[in-house]
């Protein structure tokens, strides 16, 4: 199942962004050691290349479940769109997968790949310019921040005009684009994106779609959460609808 990994269709970029590691091989390897019950093994045989598996996931805050008994799996090269109403726990689910939160009960099996997390807080510094922010991100993710790499990244994000400006002086959408740059330095990672389309204009949303398509072509996994109509346009996605505990029958009973 391992296909040749080209990170970017634009030939010039291949030597700039080093090709991602072969994620698919790692995924299948991981499964052999992680699957615990016989039932799971059957499921695993049916679903080839299962890479992430979430079993009976329960997370509580203030001793009230945010969601409970959540089960799903994600295959290599899949883009999973997590949908749900406000308060259904989309962000919580992503934060659990990112390892920021620990599950109250249940298990999350992740392959030994890094994760790239982009939440509501963007992780960029207002007093540094776009270029300096990207240089830091590149170095932080073990890449040489050569001018070629940074310039190419800036043009991928359509930020040429504001490249030398302090991030604090940019609009929310431009800041978001700058933060998306971190993903380009983490091509081998599992991407976990919380509302990646928020604050972006049409052009910016196309940037996100372009990044997602590239990642999918590389066999990379993306899990993104969105509450509304903003969904990937140009690529194949699978939807996961999270039913929060607040929406459940049991919660309504407990209130009565």
């Amino acid at each position: 199942m391992s296909k040749p990994l080209k990170y970017n269709p634009r030939a010039a970029l291949v030597d700039i962004y080093p090709p991602a590691k072969d994620n698919t091989a790692q995924c299948t390897h991981e499964l052999d050691t992680q699957i615990v019950t016989a039932v799971d093994k059957q499921v695993a045989e049916q679903e080839e290349n299962v890479c992430i598996r979430v079993e009976n996931l329960l997370f509580e805050r203030w001793f009230i479940p945010v969601f409970e008994s959540l089960n799903f799996s994600v295959k290599a090269g899949e883009t999973l769109l997590v949908r749900g109403t406000n308060g259904s726990g989309k962000t919580t689910l992503l934060r659990l997968l990112a390892g920021i939160l620990d599950p109250t009960e249940g298990r999350i099996h992740l392959p030994e790949l890094p994760v790239a997390w982009l939440g509501h807080k963007l992780g960029i510094k207002d007093s540094l310019s776009v270029r300096e922010n990207l240089q830091f991100m590149a170095r932080f993710h073990n890449m040489q921040p050569t001018d070629k790499l940074i310039n190419e990244t800036i043009s991928q994000l359509d930020l040429e005009r504001v490249a030398e400006q302090d991030a604090g002086s940019l609009s929310a959408g431009q800041r978001k684009r700058c933060a998306l740059g971190a993903l380009l330095f983490q091509s081998e990672a599992i991407w976990l994106l919380d509302e990646p389309y928020s604050n972006l204009d049409d052009n910016g949303m196309k940037v996100v779609d372009r990044l997602l398509t590239l990642h999918q072509q590389n066999g990379g996994i993306t899990i993104l959460a969105t509450h509304g109509a903003l969904t990937p346009q140009s690529l194949e996605v699978r939807e996961l609808i999270v039913l929060g505990y607040q929406d459940s029958e049991r919660y309504r009973e407990s209130l009565a």
């Binding site: 990112a98 890094p114 994760v115 997390w117 939440g119 509501h120 510094k125």
Partner: peptide, 14 residues
Amino acid sequence: FDDGSLEQFLTSGH
């Protein structure tokens, strides 16, 4: 903490 850098540090794998 406020700008999200800490979350990036935590998830970076470093």
